[in-house]
Amino acid sequence: MALIEIENLSVTFTAKGRPVRAVKGVSLAVEQGESYGLVGESGSGKSTILRAICGLAPVSGGTIRIGGQPLPSPRGADFSRRVQMVFQDPYASLHPRHTIDRTLSEPLAIHGIGNTDQRVTQALKDVGLPPNFRFRFPHQLSGGQRQRVAIARALMLEPSILLLDEPTSALDASVQAETLNLLNRLCAERGLTFLMVSHDLAVIDHMCDRILVMQHGQAVEELPREALAKAEMKTDYARSLFAASADRMLDA
């Protein structure tokens, strides 16, 4: 049984009185310990799927099951302990007037977990930040450092699933490399399951075992990692996406 099972998921927003179908009947399954990637252009509904899992998008049809159990609505405390999300923009996803210490200890306080002091220090260490960053504010950190804090926050409750929404697209190439290495290390150390969204095929290829290509809210094609490098895609859209990323090939 897969850890994350999404069947026939639809998400419909209402914009100016008109329904907008952001996700139309997408199904996917992610195994325990797997890294699964969602790719597609802006507006293809890939981030909306992650938000729907967290209960942040209006699901209009289909089911989402984690570990075989359908998710309750609202999601509740157990869900937060199993699933956490890292957002795209580290400038917008940290509270600007909370210190790093407060940001990291808040989930512990909400879930009544003690030993805050030691856990916060350890969390900073795990993501490779010096301990004296604890009492800084987000504006005193660089983009890469902020994204590390966002990852540390997501890991405070020791979840088994991380939802990553373009975790490196706001970062420079060198900082992106450091962040991807960090995520891979944490994944190996803790046996995490990743569901990751990116528009950069090279990043997805580096991180993920299987890839789902999306367009206009629909699933276009599912590919294993090996098929991507060999350009063995069956649909035209997946091929055109691949062609636009041709300069990201190994031998380019």
């Binding site: 190439a173 060198s174 490399a177 290495n181 990201r248």
Partner: peptide, 28 residues
């Protein structure tokens, strides 16, 4: 892509590549 300077080479090497190896990306 044939840059000589170690900094430029470092910037190029830390990019992931499609079909590249799964080892950690070199840090700059």
């Amino acid at each position: 892509m044939k840059a000589q300077h170690p900094y430029t080479q470092g910037l190029l090497n830390c990019l992931p590549r499609i079909g590249g190896p799964r080892e950690p990306l070199p840090a700059l």
